[in-house]
Design a binder for these strands. Sequence first.
DNA 1: CGAGCCGTTGACGCGTATCAAGGAATGTGG
DNA 2: CCACATTCCTTGATACGCGTCAACGGCTCG
Lengths: 235, 235
Amino acid sequence: MVKSVTLREAWAGEADCRRCTLRESVLFAGLGEQDFDRIHDPIDQFNLKPGTPLYQAGEVGDHMFTVRSGSLKLVQYLPDGSQRIVRIARGTDVLGLEALLGNAYQHDAVALAPTEICRFPTRVVKMLSKENPSLHDELLQRWQRALNEADAWLTELSTGSARQRVARLLLRLVRDRESSECQLFGREDMGAMLGITTETASRTIAGFKRESLIVESRPNRFLLDIPNLRRIAED
Amino acid sequence: MVKSVTLREAWAGEADCRRCTLRESVLFAGLGEQDFDRIHDPIDQFNLKPGTPLYQAGEVGDHMFTVRSGSLKLVQYLPDGSQRIVRIARGTDVLGLEALLGNAYQHDAVALAPTEICRFPTRVVKMLSKENPSLHDELLQRWQRALNEADAWLTELSTGSARQRVARLLLRLVRDRESSECQLFGREDMGAMLGITTETASRTIAGFKRESLIVESRPNRFLLDIPNLRRIAED
DNA sequence: CGAGCCGTTGACGCGTATCAAGGAATGTGG
DNA sequence: CCACATTCCTTGATACGCGTCAACGGCTCG
């Protein structure tokens, strides 16, 4: 299940890393040939089935992750046991930045769909970022992006009526996509993202279907009427 | 109103920087005497009256800030004009990290109480952090802390009934404090923090007063019945 | 003293939670 | 291959919490 590759292979694109975040992020760009052989820690690739945890809150890990495809939810729990999804990670996102600081993971990370993951040791990143300013800047940008996401999650997805929240979530799912088609989550997960109950999530989606604001193309895949959803989202 | 000090004065503690975050953060610890004279950008100190903005969303600033005393709200707006407070900055917090990356400020920052601020150019921080790994680590930790705050804000303050949210907010205000006394915000700001209306915030606080869960010691300062508030918060 | 702001309280209606049940889809064991 | 269990989505009935609209009193400030 787990496939290991060396950093050199990754750089060469042999491990299907050509479109990987690390590569796009100029992680390797500033490195010379001689650097690769100094790094023996392997990069692991593996797949997660829906529902499988990648890591759990409180674990002190020494690995970071990139999402190659699929999606995961980052979950936090309240003392009463109820859960809240605070972010979603999708293709090219980086997970586990906190491990870079020696901190425990802050959330449970659980696959929502079949998901491909790359795992690499924090020590590799620490090492490379010391010598490579552009990687370092990229890491800071990642942190900032996560922060922006967190703020937007609060402002857009936890404010207003259930209709507005669901509409905003749907629009968010197709942003930066060529197609207006998107895969939907289970109703329970939708509720945990939006701070509403499973039933309300279901009712709202069912309502959107009846109003033809969304059309089910394939099972649980929907085409969005973006202009009208946007109108609802902003009312 | 604005008082300027040199970095050397700041380091020496002449500018009342002895308890300042920058100092505690070992910002200056790794620097030698000769470094100081290379830095001519002044550090400015000034005060904000309640309601005064420190910066606004969208501005591309080249300054960062530390809060010496008082508090500010970080505000984001929805398309419909309603606002949501996504974080609060208090003593020793750092504001404007995003300026370090050349990004625009992500929020409006507005003083909630009389507030003392230190302002310094990002270029000083950039310069110092290059040569000073401990400052660099500290900056990363700051980012991570902001992220944790953002997540907690969502999980604790935007989930559950109005009673629970208000109770959690109150408890949060006295955490890491010796006393169980705290200054309260205007009802409108409380609402914007918790995702509830001004009236509901007012009613809930008034209710807590009647139940003696909080006691008004001075105008708008309250002593908290922490155990019982905690019970409400976790129900 | 009047104007304005803010906190409080009341009445009412709507939106969502809650409890409950039925149906579709998927997987399991005989 | 077909009962059966399980899970998830959907829908209904009901209750309640909160939003909304409105009014009033205390406070500060010009």
